[in-house]
Simulated scan of single mutants.
Amino acid sequence: MSTKKIRLSVLDQSPIRKGATAELAVQETIQLAKLADELGYTRYWVSEHHNTGILAGSTPEVLIAHLAGQTKHIRVGSGGIMMPNHSTLKVAENFRMLEALFPGRIDLGMGRAPGTDRITASVLNPSNQFKEQDFIEQLADLNNYFHDTYEPGTIGAKIRAIPQVKTVPAQWLLSSSGQSGLFAAHFGMGFSFAHFINPNGGPENVKLYRERFQPSDDLSQPEVNVAIFVFCSEDEEQIKQHQAVMDHRFLQFEKGAPIVPLSYDDVKDQVYTTHEQERIRHNRYRVITGTPSEIKLKLTWLADDYGIDEIMAVTICESFEARLTSYKLLARQFEL
């Protein structure tokens, strides 16, 4: 087992717990960001999801501004901005403004999925064609906006992303497949693999990203982290109950059933078919749970498998206190 120092970060989707409100979910995000800052986590990313009743995070660019103002040291960013939903110029200006306010602390994590269903995505951006080439062009345009490098005589050369600032936010591509890893390598961006979405093929995709990486003005060496669902507790019964809720939540999502906040009481008497049990076994690779000593061993194995030194923990659980405790126990185990 590796003895290298592992950095920990947070991906927060602002989950709405059963019986709670969206307002409370946002307040919990603020409280968790402050705690992560105090504990020594590396970065804190917030997500973009739309038309869902279980996640309150829809506008990371707004939330980032508040979180960065409430914290002192931790990097704050998006996990991610779903680029097909947005004008590239507006993304550039949002993040130039954030960089002006908090220079050297802002991450722009980007994805090519809409973060919602197709109907909602078409309303967010009626011109969205869901084409891969459109995403590639957005990445090229973003680089030009951040560095003011449009070719003279082009339309882009007539436009400046305001405010004009000297620093550029760190740029990352988020993906649960290898394709965006290749884009990240081509544009010289960081790569974040979403193991919590797809537990297959990650190490191979990260290896390919490293092999194909082309240094950019913003990043001279490949930089990678891996995001995974994590839950740590000293109470083994709490761990068992958490896993049962996650098992059912994944099945809800795969079936296209209404996604609603769950408690252990909602799922404890569920009887699953043989096929559902197979899906549960598969989906458990998306989650790492355990007591403090177990969790350190499992996460270190994951880091070794990927050849990385940063893990981004996604923790959604029934109790906010249990969520805070999980992040505290992780920080202690990894001596942040």
Rank of each mutant, 00 (worst) to 15 (best):
A25K: 06
A25C: 06
A25H: 04
V26A: 11
V26I: 14
Q27Y: 07
Q27L: 12
E28Q: 13
E28T: 04
E28Y: 12
T29R: 10
I30Y: 14
Q31M: 15
Q31L: 14
Q31E: 15
Q31T: 14
L32N: 08
L32E: 13
L32C: 15
L32S: 10
A33V: 08
A33T: 07
K34R: 15
L35T: 11
L35R: 12
A36S: 07
A36L: 06
A36V: 11
D37G: 07
D37M: 13
D37C: 06
D37P: 08
D37K: 14
D37W: 15
E38C: 15
E38Q: 12
L39S: 04
L39E: 08
G40N: 09
G40S: 13
G40Y: 11
Y41I: 07
Y41D: 03
T42S: 11
R43H: 05
R43N: 02
Y44R: 00
Y44D: 02
Y44I: 02
W45Q: 01
W45V: 00
W45G: 00
W45N: 01
W45Y: 04
V46E: 01
S47R: 01
E48K: 05
E48V: 05
E48Q: 13
E48Y: 05
H49F: 01
H49W: 01
H50K: 03
H50C: 04
N51I: 06
T52K: 13
T52V: 03
I54S: 02
L55M: 11
